[in-house]
C-alpha cells in the first residue's frame, strides 16, 4: 500500500514540474498578444485561489476582497511614481502593505457573521474607493496616475506565474496539513472547533491575510501591466465578481475548483468581452445564479462528492 502511494506522489510531483516547466518556456514561443492572454488568466487564477482561501475554506464569504487588490495597486503606484522605487521591490512592499492592513481588518471584520461580514467587506471596498476618489493629493483622485510603460511583458508573465504557483502550493498545503484541517473546521462548526481548543480567530485571520497578500500582489502586478491606475481600475468591481464566480463555478473550498473556474470563466470572459459589455455581465449573473441554485458545490465539488459517494458505497458493500 505504501509503495504505490509513494509512486503516486512521485508521479504527481513529476507532472507538476513538467507543467511548470512548460509554462516557464512558453513565452519564448508566443506573441505579445498571447502572452497578455496568459497574464490575464494567471491573474484570474491567483484571484480565484485567494478568494477561495478565505471564503471557500473558512466559510466567511467576502464580497470585497477586491479592497486588498486596490490597496496593493495603489501601494505599487505610489511607491513607483512618487518614490521611484524599482518594480520588484514595489510589488513586495505592496504585498506586505496589503497583509499588514489585513490583520487589523480581519480581526475586526471576522467577528461578524455571514451576511454582516459579506456586506461589511463590500462596504469596506466602496469605502476605499471613496477614499481613493477624495484623497487627491495621494491618489490623484479620478484622474489617476500614469506610470512608465512596461517593455518586457515576459517579466510580468513570470511574476504572475510565480504568484500563481505560490498560492497554489499554499492551497495544497492547506488541503494536506493539520493546519489546514483546523481552518476547515471553522466552516464546519466554529463553536465546536473552539470547544476542542482550536484558536479559530488565529486561523481565520491567517487565511484572511494570505488571501489579502495575494490579492495585493495581483493588484500591484496588474497596475504594472496597465501602467495606469484610477479608482475604477484599482477597486475593480467586475474583478471582484469574477473572483467569486470563478471559485463558485469551479468549486468553493476545493483544491482544483478555483483553477477549473478560472480557466473556464477566464476563457468565457475573454471570448465575451469582445461583444457588448453589458451582455457579458448579464451572462455572468446567470451563471452564478444557475450554479448556486443547481450545483452549489461547483464542478469539482460535485465530482468529488459523487466519487466519494461511490467509494463509501463500495466500502459499505465490502464490509457487508
Amino acid at each position: 500500500m505504501k509503495d504505490s502511494e509513494k509512486n503516486n506522489s512521485i508521479k504527481k510531483v513529476i507532472v507538476f514540474f513538467l507543467i511548470v516547466l512548460s509554462l516557464v518556456i512558453l513565452p519564448y514561443f508566443l506573441s505579445s498578444y498571447r502572452i497578455s492572454f496568459f497574464i490575464t488568466i494567471f491573474m484570474y487564477v491567483v484571484l480565484a485561489y485567494s478568494w477561495n482561501f478565505i471564503s471557500g475554506y473558512t466559510g466567511y464569504v467576502s464580497f470585497g476582497q477586491i479592497v486588498f487588490f486596490g490597496l496593493g495597486a495603489y501601494a505599487f503606484a505610489i511607491l513607483t511614481s512618487n518614490f521611484g522605487m524599482n518594480w520588484g521591490l514595489a510589488v513586495v512592499l505592496a504585498a506586505i502593505i496589503s497583509s499588514l492592513f489585513a490583520v487589523p481588518i480581519g480581526l475586526v471584520m471576522l467577528r461578524l457573521k455571514g451576511p454582516y461580514f459579506a456586506v461589511g467587506m463590500m462596504g469596506l471596498s466602496q469605502f476605499l474607493a471613496a477614499i481613493a476618489f477624495n484623497w487627491k493629493s495621494l491618489t490623484n483622485g479620478a484622474v489617476g496616475i500614469y506610470l512608465p510603460p512596461v517593455f518586457s511583458l515576459s517579466t510580468i508573465y513570470y511574476a504572475f506565474l510565480g504568484a500563481m504557483i505560490a498560492i497554489f502550493l499554499l492551497t495544497w498545503k492547506l488541503e494536506n496539513s493539520n493546519f489546514g484541517l483546523r481552518i476547515k473546521t471553522i466552516k464546519e462548526d466554529e463553536e465546536g472547533a473552539e470547544a476542542i481548543g482550536i484558536n479559530t480567530t488565529f486561523y481565520k485571520v491567517f487565511a484572511f491575510t494570505i488571501s489579502a497578500c495575494f490579492c495585493g500582489i495581483a493588484g500591484a502586478l496588474q497596475i504594472y501591466y496597465l501602467s495606469y491606475i484610477d479608482p475604477y481600475v484599482a477597486i475593480n468591481m467586475s474583478l471582484n465578481l469574477m473572483m467569486i464566480a470563478m471559485s463558485l463555478v469551479g468549486g468553493m473550498g476545493t483544491m482544483w475548483g478555483p483553477l477549473v473556474g478560472a480557466l473556464m470563466l477566464g476563457q468565457l470572459s475573454e471570448f465575451l468581452w469582445v461583444s457588448f459589455p453589458y451582455i457579458y455581465m448579464i451572462i455572468f449573473g446567470c451563471i452564478i445564479v444557475v450554479i448556486i441554485a443547481f450545483l452549489p458545490s461547483g464542478i469539482v465539488g460535485y465530482v468529488t462528492q459523487y466519487t466519494q459517494y461511490r467509494k463509501d458505497r463500495m466500502n459499505n458493500l465490502i464490509k457487508n
Partner: peptide, 24 residues
C-alpha cells in the same frame, strides 16, 4: 479566558447535539 483557551486547559465539553465535523 476565551473558550478555546479554557478547552486547552483541560475542560472538555460534549454538546447536546453532536458536533463532530461531518465533512472530515
Amino acid at each position: 479566558l476565551k473558550t478555546f483557551q479554557i478547552a486547552r486547559l483541560g475542560i472538555g465539553r460534549v454538546f447536546q447535539i453532536s458536533r463532530i465535523f461531518k465533512g472530515l
